[in-house]
Design a binder for these strands. Structure first.
Lengths: 363, 363
DNA sequence: CTGTTAGCGCTTTCAA
DNA sequence: TTGAAAGCGCTAACAG
């Protein structure tokens, strides 16, 4: 206690020093006082100067209490000992490891929300014996934030229903199972469709499609797109589909086994960069080259992966842009604008690099 | 307004319904009412039930205002159009791209703080015409959070001095230029030293050491460690040091040029995973193999990089653990515990993989 | 232009 | 065990 600092400055303190009332100081500091030419101008400057000298900074809780706004948006995340931080994590991941795709989401959200003067809070809804949805509802009801972003939607996700009851503005980053929701996501059907179409266009017929779990909206969407392409290009007999193995080791192991069977695929679509690398590892071990013997493609989730695996042909799913647009919408809703309750889908962008080529024997 | 929801439940509402006073409800809900066997027990249950039925959740701003606590910690980050989000980013990176090393920091911090019931807020201190330090000071003074974490320390960093004046608890993630600061970081000198020592132990004498900018504490620390090792192992003539080129393309270009000169190094230490891959690219293009012709090692900043570049020998700088320990300390400080104002350094852990080997001609 | 007053929702003495 | 009252720091309606 020896180094006790002087108590933080309040409006009251400035008022006392300048010799005016609290409200006057409040008005001046909030710009609600017209810069009239009369007496005001002088006191006005004295107030501003005093505020500066005294390092005044308004108490946010007090402001929030009266204004009803926190200037904060929350991103719901779940880190848990038991459950995983995200459906995208591997089983052996440490509990404090965030799924890599959060990286882009956080960047896009933080950057965009900042343009509206809104801070981002990570609403950790995990913990022992805690139902994430209950934790989320409490955050939503406690005026902790002005709005909420939820991600990683499941096909039976009840969070939109819960949040609708609370009245808190929220936006879904991704696809929502309920159509009547503000949501910004990737067109996952397009991802599934375009992947197959692209490989088909190169001449591939034997395609192995690794998908995300279909309990997730992403997985379901990609599945539907894949089905459409399979239909359109007549690949019923030759397009293999799997959504039961995941992550690097899962795909690696599964593919290694598959390669010992007949009619190996000439092209592989992997669910993400990490599993694409798992696929490549299996191919290499089996003595196959990419792309000469087998083509591999996947989605670009994080931009720095371009530096890490620059050879991969990818569909850029633009997580940062999705998050950014979600941020814009949420900011508008928080400001009271009425936003149409519908889903916005961005299109994936093909980035063709060295891991894909026409199959052997083709041109 | 047609779908107007009922106003959120207040203490008052519960009190009215049960027929007691606000204070009574407050006490019960906060467990400040002993579970006496007398009349209390009955009203107590009715209060709890009413609170549940009415979806009561305390208004955080109101609680904060009276308690003086927000149960929030903030991580200062700077995303800016002009400046870069982090000193570790490449020039061409988009403004909304977070430096990858934040990934581990965020995971470790969020996870640990959650154990104390503390949420993490990303305190974005960037923006056009905004001095990040001023923005930080305002956040510190406005009772937006109970504590602050600052990272990416520069050797002339003034943030500790600023924060000391505000009285807000804070901890430095990394090394602080001021010794009288609560800080948790990697032993950067050990990183520089151990890297050289390890390569020396393998038999390497011509070592090329790429370092982080020395304006950063990390760079300065590694430099000092490298110097000590250079001295100890008598490598004055053969250890090349550079801290003027960075990132993947910088290292790639620089190394490609170096390889055309005589006496090429037999081992390279790169500042991070991304630049290590740049170094490997240059080596490959020059017809050199890793590790047969040249060894490459770097630091492990993000754990998932093990999956992405599993062949790299690394010094694990354990960013998540550093962040986690920083979180523990901050939580204690927030709770009023007196924490010794000194710096804690974790040791890097060598993870030997396939990118390093004894130089040609050695055993 | 400026001061007075009330009140945001909660916690916490202090009495009863 | 419970209620009444004060107050956290701020904003805004209403007088003057």
């Amino acid at each position: 206690m020896e180094n006790r600092l002087s108590a933080p400055t309040r409006l009251e303190d400035i008022a006392a020093r300048v010799g005016v009332s609290r409200s006057e100081v409040s008005r001046v500091l909030n710009g609600r006082a017209r810069a009239g030419k009369s007496v005001g101008a002088a006191t006005r400057d004295r107030i501003l100067e005093a505020a500066r000298e005294m390092n005044y900074s308004p108490h946010r809780a007090a402001q929030s209490l009266v204004s009803g706004r926190t200037n904060t948006a929350a991103l719901m995340i779940v880190i848990d000992r038991q459950a995983k931080a995200s459906p995208f994590l591997e089983d052996h991941d440490a509990p404090d490891e965030l799924s890599p795709h959060y990286h882009e989401i956080l960047g896009g959200l933080t950057y965009t929300l900042n343009e509206y003067g809104i801070h981002l809070m990570l609403a950790q809804c995990g913990g022992p014996n805690i139902d994430p949805n209950v934790a989320m509802e409490q955050i939503a009801r406690s005026h902790t934030c002005d709005g909420l972003i939820i991600t990683d939607m499941m096909i039976d996700d009840v969070r939109p229903a819960i949040l609708d009851q609370t009245g808190l503005p929220y936006v879904v980053r991704g696809s929502s199972p309920q159509p009547d929701t503000v949501a910004v996501g990737m067109d996952n059907a397009a991802v599934g469709y375009e992947a197959v179409k692209y490989l088909y266009g190169l001449g591939h017929r034997r395609i192995l499609f690794y998908n995300i779990r279909r309990e997730l909206m992403v997985g379901q969407g990609r599945f539907e797109g894949m089905c459409r392409a399979r239909e359109e290009f007549g690949l019923h007999a030759t397009l293999e589909y799997r959504d039961d193995v995941h992550h690097q080791n899962g795909v690696y192991t599964s593919l290694l086994q598959r390669l010992q069977e007949p009619n190996i695929p000439t092209a592989i679509f992997a669910e993400d960069e990490i599993s694409a690398l798992g696929a490549e590892r299996a191919l290499t071990e089996a003595g196959l080259r990419v792309p000469e013997d087998v083509s591999v493609m996947t989605c670009l989730n994080a931009r720095f992966m371009r530096l890490v695996a620059p050879h991969l042909t990818v569909l850029n799913v633009r997580l940062n842009e999705v998050a950014s647009q979600a941020g814009h919408l949420l900011a508008k809703m928080v400001q009271g604008e009425v936003v149409e309750r519908k889903q916005v889908f961005l299109q994936p962008i093909l980035e063709e690099r060295g891991s894909t080529a026409p199959p052997r024997g083709n041109s």
